[in-house]
Design a protein around this nucleic acid. Structure first.
Lengths: 270, 270
DNA sequence: GAAAAAAAATCCATGGAGCGAAACGAAAAT
DNA sequence: ATTTTCGTTTCGCTCCATGGATTTTTTTTC
């Protein structure tokens, strides 16, 4: 699954990801150097991506194109989770005036799913869609603490002992705390989110610089985060009706296959 | 640029776009049939895409993955335009209680960039990132009416006479109207957005079913849309400081190249 | 619960698709 | 005017992607 991959495809994505990281228009030579490929190769791949509207060519410089938006829009509506969480995240952000994050958990993977930013100038930075650390972030540890033994086995790396030792406290409080362990000067509280059948969906967190988020405030923000996570779990229950682990859901989906195929595509695209 | 493209790359994107359109987990056989490729080929491409986290394999069924979010997040911050427009769009949506759209214009291309939805059950549907029609939508015609002759030349299709004949009215009112011409029962008003140097950035529109958006309301909603477009243009001015078409910006960016390269990548990704 | 059917995953010989060094022309920089 | 840099094009070689066939797994049917 890693080296069985098609070479051009991974090359194309390494270019896309590089464009995403730089966040500015780049020339071919520059890209070629960064991704360590010959110019001609980069040129051809970029040309193909332009044809797919995944990148745009703006006067010799390249940047990401609107297809990226289309894919993300579909991704969000397909999970549903992010949309359901939005109003709760907004309430949490407005109450704390700090940056709040939504994380998704998927078979051992953990990543930033959504964020709402603090109005202050100094605030935490993050990249939606990027991988997040289950061990280092408060949101990650809050989730880990409530995983079943079966779910633990899916983790790509073994659980460090010092993380596991925090579980009892996390479970009793209902949220996890990160007191500058991940980054000096940054304090976070996080709580886990589950669906109706108890499957872990992800987590929520509030992050702020210590001078705005004192240790005395940990309990109050922690309670807010915990309540928000519970509220999101509640809305998720209606989204993913109680079911036996997902098998039933899969069967339902499969049943819809034929009718959907014959219904035809959208009129506006391609 | 169309047939000089790399075959696997366009195949990979046709699969991604298909997944985006279906908006549900799909099996290999089903995808293979839809995109008209052998199963083995689809399997290999999907496998590569999973390796890039562009799709996820959820028990034999495939759906879009978090990298899509990452690319879209970068796309949005790279244009800046969408972010700057957000608060104005929200005000417009809250005042009208109807779905508002933001469109981007880019060298003859026009597409949905953002939307905020009406709280009502019955509301317009659209796909962020998908192409939009410059000729049929009110937002498109509002933009066309204010393009310079040079910019007109970039249009992929010639301007229909009946569209051009509306320009004087659009210019005098400051917004364009679509009275069920695009779709029966749907009424829209749209206005164009420009940056500090007069370059067209896109357009804004309000869309609603005719029974909530009567012909008597066209002038009031039209005025709101016009004002919103002006406000967005104003904020865009500060984003893209008055400059001679962009050459200066390009030079500035180029200067930052070396320092950025040597600064290394983000610690959290890949 | 066994048999049948369908789908996913794997294998492999083959051809052409993708590759990249090099050359070219255009545009900046000096 | 000269040099450097960058984007684009060419072209012959090679190895990579291909897809038909096979095996394995899952689902359905009886």
């Amino acid at each position: 699954m890693e080296n069985g991959a098609i070479r051009v495809v991974s090359r194309a994505f390494s270019i896309l990801v590089h464009l995403a990281q730089e966040r500015r228009p780049l020339g071919i030579s520059e890209i070629a150097e960064s991704v360590a490929l010959p110019k001609a190769t980069v040129y051809r791949i970029l040309d193909s991506l332009v044809g797919e509207r995944a990148v745009m060519n703006r006067g010799g410089e390249y940047e990401l194109g609107p297809v990226c938006l289309m894919l993300a829009d579909a991704y969000r509506s397909q999970t549903g989770f992010a949309e359901a969480a939005r109003p709760h995240l907004r309430a949490l952000r407005d109450e704390t005036k700090e940056t709040v994050h939504l994380f998704a958990y998927e078979r051992g993977e953990f990543y930033y799913l959504d964020k709402l930013e603090s109005p202050y100038q100094v605030r935490m930075h993050s990249r939606i869609g990027a991988k997040a650390s289950l061990f280092r972030l408060s949101a990650g540890r809050a989730l880990l603490a409530r995983l079943s033994p079966d779910e633990m086995k899916e983790l790509p790396e073994p659980l460090p002992g010092e993380v596991a030792s925090e579980f009892p406290e996390i479970l009793s409080r209902g949220f996890a705390v990160d007191d500058e362990q991940n980054e000096r000067g940054l304090r976070c509280v996080g709580a886990a989110v589950f669906d109706g059948s108890g499957r872990p969906l992800g987590a929520v967190s509030v992050s702020a610089p210590v001078y705005r988020f004192s240790s005395e405030m940990v309990d109050s923000y922690g309670l807010l985060v915990k309540r928000t996570a519970e509220a999101i779990s509640k809305s998720a229950e209606t989204l993913f009706p109680r079911a036996g682990g997902g098998e039933r859901l899969r069967a339902e989906r499969a049943g819809k296959m034929k009718e959907r195929i014959s219904s035809g595509g959208a009129p506006d695209e391609r």
